[in-house]
Design a protein around this nucleic acid. Structure first.
Lengths: 267, 267
DNA sequence: ATTTTAGTTCCAAATATTGAAACCGTGTTT
DNA sequence: AAACACGGTTTCAATATTTGGAACTAAAAT
């Protein structure tokens, strides 16, 4: 029963292809025209056209008559509400984040892994707001963020392997780890230490400490981080280590008492 | 060009049917089993099964192995982030909401119309800071909420007609308007007044004042409300009338400067 | 006026979808 | 313990849908 599957293809028929188009549209981050989509979708003109029509009158996309552009539709917001409430750690973790926020006064992030990327599912702002992007639903790279590395470090080998192939290893700063080998070494350190650092690997001047949230069986459920924008951040953050680990532990406990969020199969 | 369309059905093929299943799952508001879905989906067993499989390995649903349940998947959260940022008024309205929140100290709601329902896209709490999908993405009835009525009041007749057929007219409180006729009368008052009241029509003890957000051409973009839980709420809220109208105006201006969010076609 | 670009429609061939029925575990009743 | 019911999964031939090359139209650029 080993996956000596002779069929690595899982294109999921029409539905899969149509949803892929939805992703393409979302990726643009702005309204797009048909002609811009065509080259990135790898579909015949007529087919793409039909898909866009379908998605539009399904409310998954909205079409701007005036500007002839497509953008993700409000139906997604409705659906995502349910997803966030049921499939994310956020509702469960909320009280613990509130608590930690009160205790530290720092910016907090709660993230989960999706398709090898970091998906932020909740956030607490510091009293002194730090300049950085991130909100629920926002995605970011795994290989150069605290939460990302914390999660990767505890992935089983096959899932890790899969996730690594999806990393771009783009150099954001001079501290960014830009290849799988050095990242693997770093992950080893994280496992020894029990938590991860992001030492300006993603954004200059931004450091954070991150702890994985693991199910009792050791499965990766998500990760939690505390961010600092201060130059002496590292030292300050270090003092939070016991606290963040403890909080991650509590969240894990609460999560497993209620449900086990199922990790996406490493297809 | 009137919809004397001989084909009121627009089933959108496989994709449409599959997405309908996604809605059914989301509606449950909790993880569902195959057998619970079967009766509400009106599909043959094998077909529903295949759809669920497809949605699951597309990440639109997540499947809990242990409990054998389906729930909306994280991919939706990612997609919705883009939708929220591009198709909702929220990003544009944010600074104005912040301002209004500071000035009034009250709970605010920003909503848009989706499928005849009120879709909340942003919120400001009296105390807490912003919570993303916890509130945005939530849906509510149009016929008995301030924001709902404010939007209905300015809809063109055909769209209103369509929206009215989608209202359940369930009696939530003794103040709820429970039929189209009395609602239409109320809408007339709202147009005269320029803003809407919700006088405990949805929840006992909860009142609000709401203003429509209209494009320069008079198209309904959304609505804004200030809520009060105080017994003397009405009187207090009345003093906010000029302020909320002014804020709605500003948001409308800002929105039309940047883009015209296209309203869902009244299919 | 002519050409190019962008978007839309056609339609026969190719393919994916369909769903009744059979099947398979697992737990429950007799 | 055998028989049964329940929930879920798989099969497969009939069928309806999707597919996409190409032709077409509208609008913009030359």
């Amino acid at each position: 029963m080993n996956d000596a599957t002779p069929k690595p293809e899982k294109s999921d028929g029409t539905v899969g292809r149509t949803l892929a188009v939805l992703d393409r549209v979302a990726e643009f981050g702005r309204p797009v025209r048909f002609a811009e989509l065509l080259p990135v979708c790898d579909l015949p003109k007529a087919t793409l056209y039909r898909f866009l029509q379908t998605l539009t009158n399904q409310g998954m996309l909205a079409f701007d008559e005036d500007r002839q552009t497509y953008r993700p539709g409000l139906r997604l917001v409705r659906l995502a509400h349910a997803a966030w409430a049921q499939s994310s750690l956020a509702p469960i973790a909320a009280p613990f984040l509130d608590q930690l926020s009160k205790e530290t006064g720092q910016t907090l992030h709660l993230a989960q892994l999706d398709q090898g990327m970091v998906l932020y599912v909740d956030k607490r702002n510091a009293s002194h707001p730090v300049e950085m992007f991130s909100q629920s639903g926002k995605v970011g790279p795994a290989y150069c963020t605290g939460v990302g590395k914390a999660m990767l470090a505890y992935l089983p080998e096959d899932a890790l392997q899969n996730a690594l192939t999806r990393q771009s290893f783009h150099r954001f700063t001079e501290h960014t780890l830009t290849d799988a080998t050095s990242l693997r070494a770093e992950l080893e350190n994280i496992r020894k230490r029990g938590f991860a650092w992001d030492d300006e690997e993603h954004e200059p001047g931004i450091r954070c400490i991150a702890a994985p949230i693991l199910s009792p069986q050791g499965r990766v459920l998500g990760a939690l981080s505390i961010t600092s924008g201060q130059p002496d951040g590292q030292k300050q953050l270090e003092t939070y280590a016991p606290l963040i680990l403890e909080t991650a532990e509590k969240i894990a406990k609460a999560a497993s008492d209620w449900r086990f969020p199922e990790q996406k199969r490493a297809d």
